[in-house]
């Protein structure tokens, strides 16, 4: 008990220390930004206060939340389609050697295609519709999810499959109780990567092939040389991704994988 308490006691100041370090880093960046903004024109580097006012203004007008939501929904849509196609595809390719060998070259090829190329194809095929960014997110996320699930199936312990056989599990039960939990960590890291990439490429897609969303608004602002707005959109979306990471992904990961040995101790 006393050992556990000692670890807990040493961890709290460590957490506090990290938080202080993060705040200090943010403060330094802000100061540097402000100093640079003093010696440059506003259309090159607007000062932090002006950007903050712009964020407040865009939020108050509803422009910011609605476009943020539009982009987020597109990313989620593309991501979910990638999961729905990619998980079964990865399972099939991982469990069937012949199919796996046959389709193996497809993934590296898909991975080398730049998302800008997907965006151009998407515009040709879907025009300026929401389908364009969704398609680009899908094509970026899909190979990541397939690859990771595929790798996960390779990592399933044959001993556990034998255990399921000795316990007379049906195929469906073996899949659900042995394969899926074994693959979950691989799926999770793939999905996490896919969502992050998906968000970034959705902005690219929106700047060239959409009439709404964060990417579209950023291009519009840059066309009108409203640099303060470009900064405002950038900061808001970074903040959003941080919030998703800290409030959603990290707690989810902790919950799903709490059975893992804690490597910190």
């Amino acid at each position: 008990m006393s050992e556990a308490e000692a670890i807990a006691a040493s961890r709290v100041p460590a957490g506090l220390k990290t938080a202080l370090q993060r705040c200090a880093l943010a403060a330094i960046l802000l100061v540097v930004w402000w100093l640079v903004s003093l010696v440059t024109p506003a259309y090159v580097m607007p000062n932090p206060i002006r950007v903050w006012q712009r964020i407040v203004q865009l939020t108050a007008s509803g422009d910011l939340p609605s476009n943020l939501l539009v982009t987020l929904l597109r990313v989620i849509a593309g991501f979910l389609i990638a999961v729905v196609i990619g998980v079964p595809a990865g399972l099939v390719l991982g469990s069937n050697r012949t199919l796996g060998n046959f389709f193996e070259p497809v993934l590296p090829v898909l991975n080398t295609v730049s998302s800008a190329i997907w965006a151009i194809f998407a515009i040709i095929w879907f025009g300026l519709t929401p389908l364009t960014p969704i398609f680009v997110v899908l094509m970026t996320a899909l190979p990541l999810i397939v690859t990771n699930v595929w790798q996960g199936t390779q990592a399933v312990n044959a001993d556990f499959v034998e255990l399921a056989r000795a316990l007379r599990f049906s195929r469906a039960k073996t899949l659900r109780k042995i394969y899926l939990p074994s693959i979950l960590p691989y799926f999770f890291s793939g999905a996490r990567l896919a969502f992050g990439f998906g968000w970034r490429v959705s902005l690219v897609a929106e700047t060239i092939g959409s009439s709404s969303g964060v990417g579209y608004r950023m291009r519009q602002a840059s066309d009108l040389i409203q640099t303060d707005q470009v900064f405002a959109w950038t900061i808001v979306q970074i903040a959003m991704m941080l919030v998703i990471e800290i409030l959603l992904l990290q707690p989810l990961e902790r919950r799903l994988f709490r059975w893992r040995r804690d490597v910190r101790s």
């Binding site: 001993d159 556990f160 255990l163 000795a166 316990l167 042995i178 979950l184 059975w259």
Partner: peptide, 12 residues
């Protein structure tokens, strides 16, 4: 049936 190793699922 008891195996040679304990064969416990680590996530359970």
């Amino acid at each position: 049936y008891m195996f040679q190793d304990d064969r416990l699922l680590p996530w359970r």
